[in-house]
């Protein structure tokens, strides 16, 4: 994603005389940003995400700067006459991959979500959760510049939920924008760059809460080269960074982003030495967050 996706005064209604579901929505999604959309049931969150994903055209207003987009629906049907690997290969080519790399990545992503055993099972026979894994894999297959997740975590098992959080962290670290809706307030807690709320048919930035919920954390201790500064890619997802002894840093990182931080440290030039990775030893509430 090289430029911003911008929604300007966007409105949407179904039917010529239907009531406005959304109106006057302004939203800018910058590369590498994670955006959370909140709102009660039926307020138009899904409508907003469909507009952001480009599935629906706004009734009024403009959307500019469309990047390569992928979308995960809340419920994915298994009524498709394919096997997961066949469907994902088709979708990979639709996303612009060659057939060969689409098939290879389909296998990789099914493996990551623990669905490799079902790669050749007809989709009609899949459970709801496994179908949802196929939907998630479909979206992540081609490294989209904009990833839109409409309650994509619903129906996934605990391991797949954590894997999807890590996949989101990877996507934003690679410069992609991610927008998501989820009813669990702990989902990627503390990580989003922006939180918006759909209220009365329009979008408002959520005002800072007194105590934002904090998700699971990981403490990474790393030592750098003499006089070295922490790589920006490692500090950006970190909740806090302390320097207990000169040259050694303690980074407190959302658990979903520990892989991204480690990768940034180990691939820095010159590389950093990771001393330890451990769960936090102080209650997360006492961490001060920016």
């Amino acid at each position: 994603m090289h430029r911003d996706l911008e929604l300007a005064r966007v409105g949407r209604r179904y039917g010529i005389r239907g009531p406005w579901v959304l109106r006057g929505v302004d939203l800018t999604l910058t590369p590498g940003s994670l955006t959370r959309v909140e709102g009660a049931n039926g307020t138009g969150k899904s409508t907003l995400l469909r507009l952001v994903a480009g599935i629906d055209t706004p009734t009024e207003g403009r959307i500019t700067g469309r990047p390569r987009t992928a979308y995960v629906p809340e419920r994915f049907p298994s009524a498709l006459p394919f096997t997961p690997s066949g469907y994902l290969t088709h979708l990979g080519t639709v996303h612009g991959l060659s057939r060969r790399s689409a098939a290879a990545r389909a296998a990789d992503w099914l493996e990551r979500f623990g669905a490799a055993a079902y790669a050749a099972t007809p989709m009609a026979q899949l459970s709801k959760g496994t179908s949802q894994k196929v939907a998630v894999a479909q979206a992540l297959l081609a490294d989209p510049e904009l990833l839109v997740l409409d309650e994509a975590w619903t129906g996934l098992d605990a391991e797949a939920r954590a894997e999807l959080e890590r996949a989101v962290a990877e996507r934003t670290a690679a410069g992609g924008a991610v927008v998501f809706v989820d009813h669990d307030p702990r989902r990627l807690a503390g990580v989003p760059d922006a939180v918006h709320q759909v209220v009365a048919g329009t979008l408002e930035p959520r005002t800072a809460q007194a105590a934002p919920p904090v998700g699971p954390l990981t403490v990474v201790t790393a030592r750098g080269p003499a006089g070295g500064r922490l790589p920006a890619d490692a500090t950006r997802p970190s909740a806090s960074a302390a320097e207990p002894t000169p040259g050694t840093y303690r980074l407190t990182v959302p658990a979903s982003h520990s892989d991204v931080v480690l990768r940034a440290l180990l691939t820095a030039q010159p590389p950093w030495h990771v001393v330890s990775v451990s769960p936090p030893d102080v209650p997360p509430d006492e961490k001060d967050r920016p």
Partner: peptide
């Protein structure tokens, strides 16, 4: 023939 959710995935990738 295509289920609406699957159609949405394709529409996001290539435009409706």
């Amino acid at each position: 023939g295509e289920p609406p959710a699957a159609r949405a995935c394709v529409a996001a990738a290539r435009g409706p």
